[in-house]
Design a protein around this nucleic acid. Structure first.
Lengths: 135, 135
DNA sequence: TTTGCTGCAAATCCTTTGCAGAGGT
DNA sequence: ACCTCTGCAAAGGATTTGCAGCAAA
């Protein structure tokens, strides 16, 4: 879509990528900032945002389009589905071995050119399920 | 989930609901504010946000959990899918008559209690498809 | 009359951006 | 050397909230 500018693998970009790929918690930009700061104490939050944007534009990582804020990031670039807890917002990868068949035949019934879909499962995580109700 | 407080159908709440149900454009809070303001010139944006929240909590409308900001609202409370244009962010209801089968067998492979899913198709709307490229 | 609701404005949260200097290639 | 990238800080967009008065029930 865009002309690719020549990118540089700076220390900051490298560490952000490494730290994000260490975890499977789908952290927010701010959480990634805290993780990276342990190795690069002088990095700024703006730099983290800028690099997450660039890395996801280049397909190294994913910016998750979930219905919650702040946005979350995934070090696994390959498309896969997620399950989000409605209570604590924890996000996990959906396990393999279940069927999702979303037909794209849809294209014939609309003027839109469909290029994909976003699917997110919602529910409650074990922790929130077992916690006694607060009210 | 919560104890339901006794709600009042104020003029503001009524008009917000009416205006939202007139359209199928899935407007944002700010767009709804502009629509409602023609009938209630002194209404505030805060009131619009508060009422949209209350109405969606009570199942009168839907707050759409799409991967775009600002959030959009739907006067149709029944669950249905949407198609969003990646370019202009226009959102339309997905037409009936196509197959989506998302099995919830998923529950057996995870500790989460799955209660539903969010599915959004993405693509390009006719207007954006036909517009000459800007670059 | 009760108490949920409103308008207003300030605050908050998340994210982006302008700038001058640093650092990859 | 070139030019992208950085830290800093300020700006920006979207949404929430405190408060004193208003108005449904």
């Amino acid at each position: 879509m865009l002309n690719q500018p020549s990118l540089r693998m700076t220390r900051q970009r490298q560490v952000i990528l490494e730290e994000l790929r260490k975890v499977n918690t789908h952290p927010s930009a701010d959480e990634i900032y805290e993780m990276v700061r342990k190795r690069l104490p002088r990095i700024s939050l703006g730099t983290v945002y800028r690099n997450l944007e660039i890395l996801s534009e280049n397909g190294e990582i994913q910016k998750l389009e979930l219905g919650c804020s702040p946005k979350r990031f995934d070090g696994v670039a390959e498309d896969h589905y997620h399950i989000r807890c409605l209570d604590c917002n924890r996000v996990i990868d959906s396990p393999p071995g279940f069927d999702v068949c979303v037909t794209h035949e849809l294209t014939e019934n609309t003027d839109f050119k469909i290029i994909g879909h976003k699917l997110e499962f919602i529910g409650f995580c074990p922790t929130c399920l077992n916690r006694p109700q607060t009210c």
